[in-house]
Design a protein around this nucleic acid. Sequence first.
DNA 1: CCAATATCTCAATTGTTATTGAAATGTAGA
DNA 2: TCTACATTTCAATAACAATTGAGATATTGG
Lengths: 123, 123
Amino acid sequence: MDERQALAAFAALAQSHRLRLVRHLVIAGPDGLAAGTLAGAVGVSTSNLSFHLKELDHAGLIQSRREGRSIIYSAAYPALSGLIQFLMKDCCQGHPEVCTPAVAALAVCCTPAERRRPEPVLP
Amino acid sequence: MDERQALAAFAALAQSHRLRLVRHLVIAGPDGLAAGTLAGAVGVSTSNLSFHLKELDHAGLIQSRREGRSIIYSAAYPALSGLIQFLMKDCCQGHPEVCTPAVAALAVCCTPAERRRPEPVLP
DNA sequence: CCAATATCTCAATTGTTATTGAAATGTAGA
DNA sequence: TCTACATTTCAATAACAATTGAGATATTGG
């Protein structure tokens, strides 16, 4: 993930329809959702949806595959991770206080409970 | 951090001058940098700089204070953390594989070595 | 107070992006 | 093959964002 890609990703996420599309797709998981389903979910015309999906695709945040007469879109999880890591890397140069709260929040959210270590007691 | 704020933040970060400004400020730490210093660092005219700094301020990503005849800008660390958490929260609904790599990268980057717990051995 | 410095404001120009509706493309079932 | 369905393309319009340069505002040292 370089600056150019990060800018494209941020621009893609800086639009409410697209942000909602990405959120829906992320929650939908790798199976993804058909374009028509997405149109209903975010309340956008099919032609406008197509425009936004293309923008997201160009930004590398989603991918598509044909399935029957539908086209199924899904989140590009590695790109999302990469963007987050790009942001974080820049937040940490000598200032861990910037992202420590985010790490804490994530650690709870992303670690299945049965694998979670007890919180350490720090001095 | 609600959707409106996240959109404003993403829009602010989706511009190369502003992204560089934020990165400089984040690395500079809480002490911040004078506007003139930033202008030199990112190569932008003072009037254009003023425009971009105001955009970042409106997005809540930076703050400013006067010091002598200079105005010192600094990163709004809590807003950055909040944005990251907003993004992450949406990435995790049932799909930890999305952000686990990011968490791993962050955990190393943001935890001072002396406080780091040994990596757990999981089955 | 005056001059120098630092930053901001304003208006004009240019370029980019979002939205709409109509028409075109591609797919599958009868 | 014909028809219905799902999605995309295209052109036009409207809204928004970035840049520039000139001038205004604020602060300090002499």
